[in-house]
C-alpha cells in the first residue's frame, strides 16, 4: 500500500490501515525509544504513547512531508520527555545511591540469543549514550542506529546541517571520554 493511500484510510479512521502503519513503523519507533531510555518497559510505554499521538494528530500531517520524518519527530519528543521524567524518578527513588551495574547486567541477559560480549559492549555504549545531553543523544541515535543522513537528522530535529554536524562532533567526543572510563 502506498503511503498516501494508507494515510487517507487512516484519516478516515480505518483501524486496519493504522495497524498496517504500526507494523511498518513499530521497529523504528521502539528502537529510538529503547536507545533513548535504555529500558524495554519504558520504551514500550513511550511507543504506545507515540502511536496514539500519531493516530490522533494524523490530520495535521502535511502530505508533502515525509511520513517517517514526522513520526521520528513525535518519537524523539516523546522519548526525551520520558527520559526527563525518568531522570527525576531515578533521583527521587535514590537509585543513584545503589549504582547502575544491575541495569547493564539486566540488559545483557535480556537477549540471551546474542553473544554476551556483544551485549556487554552494547550495554556500555548504551550507558554512555544515556549520559549525553538530550540533543546530542538524539543526534547520535538517529545517525548510528537509524542511519539517517545529516539532512534527515536536521529535518527531524528542526535545525541546520551545521548544527547537526556540531552536535555529532560533541556527542562523539563526549562518548569517547565516557567509554574510555567505562571500558577500564
Amino acid at each position: 500500500m502506498k503511503n498516501l493511500e494508507l494515510l487517507e484510510k487512516i484519516r478516515r479512521g480505518d483501524r486496519s490501515a493504522f495497524k498496517h502503519f504500526y507494523e511498518e513503523y513499530k521497529g523504528m519507533v521502539f528502537n529510538v525509544c529503547y536507545r533513548m531510555l535504555n529500558d524495554k518497559q519504558d520504551a514500550e510505554d513511550a511507543t504506545q504513547d507515540i502511536f496514539v499521538k500519531a493516530f490522533r494528530s494524523i490530520q495535521k500531517f502535511r502530505s508533502d512531508a515525509k511520513l517517517s520524518t514526522w513520526l521520528y519527530q513525535i518519537a524523539v519528543n516523546t522519548g526525551l520527555n520520558y527520559a526527563r521524567r525518568k531522570k527525576i524518578a531515578t533521583w527521587l527513588s535514590l537509585d543513584f545511591l545503589v549504582g547502575k551495574e544491575e541495569s547493564i547486567l539486566d540488559n545483557a541477559q535480556a537477549r540471551p540469543d546474542l553473544k554476551l560480549e556483544k551485549n556487554e559492549s552494547d550495554a556500555l555504549v548504551q550507558q554512555a549514550i544515556q549520559s549525553l545531553p538530550p540533543r546530542q543523544r538524539t543526534a547520535i541515535i538517529l545517525q548510528r542506529y537509524e542511519e539517517l543522513s545529516y539532512k534527515e537528522i536536521a529535518e527531524v530535529m528542526k535545525t541546520s546541517l551545521s548544527a547537526v554536524e556540531s552536535l555529532l562532533h560533541h556527542a562523539k567526543d563526549n562518548l569517547t571520554k565516557k567509554l574510555i572510563v567505562l571500558l577500564k
Partner: peptide, 29 residues
C-alpha cells in the same frame, strides 16, 4: 578497546516491542 565496543554495539540493530503492544494501543484508541 573503543573500536571493539563501538563496532560490536552497532551490530545489534533492531530491537522489537512485545507482540501484545498493538492490543494495548488498539484498546487505547
Amino acid at each position: 578497546s573503543l573500536s571493539g565496543a563501538w563496532n560490536l554495539s552497532q551490530s545489534i540493530k533492531q530491537v522489537q516491542p512485545s507482540p501484545f503492544l498493538w492490543n494495548k494501543i488498539s484498546a487505547q484508541l
